[in-house]
Design a binder for these strands. Sequence first.
DNA 1: GATTGGCTTTGACTTAGATCAAGTTGGGAC
DNA 2: GTCCCAACTTGATCTAAGTCAAAGCCAATC
Lengths: 248, 248
Amino acid sequence: MLQEPILTGSQNCEECPIRHRAVCARCETDELQRLEEVKYYRRFEAGQPIIWCGDRMDFVGSVVLGVASLTQAMEDGRTQMVGLLLPSDFVGRPGRAVAAYDVTATTDVLMCCFRRAPFEALIEDTPHIAHRLLEMTLDELDAAREWMLVLGRKTAREKIASLLSIIARRDAMLHIRREDGPVVFDLPLTREAMADYLGLTLETVSRQVSALRKDGVISLEGKRHVTVPDISRLLEEAGDDMDGGLIS
Amino acid sequence: MLQEPILTGSQNCEECPIRHRAVCARCETDELQRLEEVKYYRRFEAGQPIIWCGDRMDFVGSVVLGVASLTQAMEDGRTQMVGLLLPSDFVGRPGRAVAAYDVTATTDVLMCCFRRAPFEALIEDTPHIAHRLLEMTLDELDAAREWMLVLGRKTAREKIASLLSIIARRDAMLHIRREDGPVVFDLPLTREAMADYLGLTLETVSRQVSALRKDGVISLEGKRHVTVPDISRLLEEAGDDMDGGLIS
DNA sequence: GATTGGCTTTGACTTAGATCAAGTTGGGAC
DNA sequence: GTCCCAACTTGATCTAAGTCAAAGCCAATC
């Protein structure tokens, strides 16, 4: 089902749809060479845990194919997804040996991993990579803060629209797409996972998805295949200003 | 009201209660010397804006005294605080010229600022500082994600207890304090600011603070001066496991 | 082709927190 | 002192979303 990704030393980070944002071949060919020695791929099936909070973690990596999620749980079972990991997103924290969150494969996932120690050594003496990592982390921080607004202040309907916007936008980054045409994608999340991301119950998610469908904001084929006829209508429903800063 | 901070080149980041975590004198005396040339202080009165979202921002800095807040606003006026800036917290993003959030002085604030261009140059050729900045950013990301759980899944009472825990913990870092004694601090936020941080209304905040007082979890002198007789009781109310990971 | 079991939808009812509307408090200006 | 005003509290009501319960819908398996 998953194919091995094509990722050669000559690949250009601007053109390659599946970018290892932390290790860009265009800029750091030599360093990438060093990393090739400690690079390996891992597959996970949909629903499988990638790592549990508290586990020892001796790799960092990035998602190549599929979708994974970062979640936090309270003792009584309430859970909150705190990050959605789409292709090119980075997992793991240099300098930390223990996972802070549960990481779960939401769809089938292919991850590209690097052993942590050599990766940290690389950061140590390759300022350029450290710099890029800082930039990525700052982007993630912005995304997390954007999501705090969603969680704290938006209505259920706006939350759903916000989530669909994010997925549509990230999906559009991977595919070449005509301007202003309808956006089509498959939801990589169950209703329950959506609820965990949005701080809702799965019933409310289901009701609001149905409502958006009835109102013509989206249309559904099956339960997961979504068509958005007018993306700006969706952004409006999400309560965002049109400049679109959801994921920077 | 605010006094000029003592911040000499010989100051040790481990001992000094007001630390510029980004530029630690102990580790980077020479580099700090370079920064001294572009360093300046700015004061803000309680309630004043420090910078508006969208404004050009040609400095970075850190809070020395007081409390500031990062907030995001929707067009219809709903607002969500996305960060609480306590002494030693960093403001601004290297590589970004435009502010992404509104920054407001919640109490009287003294900030230590550096012009952005020289600061970025320093990062560029001082890997150690870049590394520290990455670590700080990762910590902030963890804090933001912890807060996503608060916003998405906790009840109003748990939210209040979580906020009080954070302030108590950060406050305890600034003062030497007996183990297990009562924790005493002044709330640096109005009820409205608390509501904006917690995704609640100010009325709900007021009610839940009163409830925690009635139940003996906290006691109040005036409206802002808080005594927590048993900090572990407060953490329990916050729904946290006892290991205390709210701010790493 | 029937059966199972995950998802998902939909309905009826409940509730935590929002909203609206008075009051109260307390510190600073005069 | 008293007046003022912003910050806060408290009460009454409303509502969006949660809870509980019962079907529905595939896709995989027997």
